[in-house]
């Protein structure tokens, strides 16, 4: 809906270019990515609420290539969670199409893994049996003999070795979230959808889990769609950060995060490049909120 004022957008783009990050404006005419694993095409969605219709998405376009980690940021209540439910096939869009692996998404499919802010572990099951839950629904995705072995190796990868037989209530919030990530990955999904999975954790635990995500990705390459409120998180984890406009949401701005030659560490968040990227994103969020961004030097 809201057109981005070119006077504001121009210096931002140049600022990003000079710092090595490439930024592109996206609108409905953006050319479509070839071989995209997830391709969201002109999706609009409106909820019927007690106070009348509420349009949350407006001709939203978004493509994610195979193996790519895309973060979506935007103002509160702009429809980010609706987006995850559309990609998961839990919700049908009013108009537009969601394509996953070259197939039109018409309903839920086994090739998606999900993790939420609430780890939603089943309290009556051990951590191991929680992680293995998806395999009870879609056992064919992993050879039967490897089910338990795979769960155990994922758990040890996120640092939960020795906690397999514990109940969720015996674990800290961060550990529960780690188990929830393992559950999202156990059935080798084509894409994992992360809806603010680190949102409720304290700052130190959150940063630990960011590192865990990188470790997981190094051993278990996956395609990811991350919804977050945390700009540092988006820059640290993603290859591409998409800023959504205020409701009804469109893709307002896309930032490519340059791949670093070495494994990312937290120090990388304090380089000039990273600080530039964060400043750009912050300005874009302010634009999305309808505020005039503070001048950017």
């Amino acid at each position: 809906m809201r057109k981005i004022d070119n006077d504001h957008a121009a210096p931002i783009t140049s600022g990003a270019a000079s710092s090595g990050a490439s930024a592109t404006h996206t609108d409905s005419s953006t050319q479509r990515m070839e071989n995209a694993l997830i391709d969201i095409r002109a999706v609009s969605h409106t909820f019927q609420t007690d106070s009348g219709p509420l349009q949350v998405l407006d001709k939203l376009d978004l493509s994610i290539a195979e193996g790519q980690f895309t973060a979506v940021v935007g103002p509160s209540g702009c429809g980010k969670s609706t987006l995850t439910r559309l990609v998961a096939g839990l919700l049908k869009p009013d108009s537009g199409e969601v394509w996953l692996h070259g197939e039109l998404v018409k309903g839920p499919r086994a090739s998606v893994g999900m993790a939420f802010q609430n780890p939603v572990l089943l309290e009556w099951r051990s951590i191991l049996r929680n992680v293995m839950l998806p395999l009870e629904i879609v056992p064919e995705r992993v050879p039967a003999a490897e089910h338990e072995e795979r769960a155990r190796s994922l758990l040890s990868l996120v640092g939960l070795e020795g906690f397999e037989d514990k109940k969720p209530s015996e674990l800290s919030g961060g550990m529960r979230q780690r188990a929830s990530l393992c559950r999202a990955l156990i059935h080798k999904p084509d894409v994992i959808i992360l809806d603010e999975p680190f949102g409720a954790l304290d700052a130190f635990t959150r940063e630990d889990l960011w590192q865990t995500m990188h470790a997981l990705r190094a051993t278990e390459p996956f395609t990811a769609l991350l919804i977050t409120h945390d700009l540092r998180e988006s820059v640290f984890l993603a290859d591409e950060v998409v800023v959504l406009s205020d409701r009804p949401a469109r893709a307002q701005y896309t930032l490519s995060v340059p791949t670093s030659s070495h494994e990312r560490t937290l120090d990388d968040l304090y380089t000039t490049e990273a600080v530039e990227m964060l400043a750009i994103l912050r300005q874009q969020i302010q634009l999305a909120q309808g505020r005039t961004p503070a001048s950017h030097s």
Binding site: R85, R109, L122
Partner: peptide, 28 residues
């Protein structure tokens, strides 16, 4: 909580399966 339902629904689990694996034990 809808998330409990979603983790299984996203995998194509039937309503009965979600009821048996999550809703029923959680209500005990």
């Amino acid at each position: 909580e809808p998330e409990y339902r979603d983790i299984l629904r996203a995998l194509g689990a039937s309503k009965l399966m979600i009821f048996r694996k999550i809703a029923l034990p959680k209500t005990l």
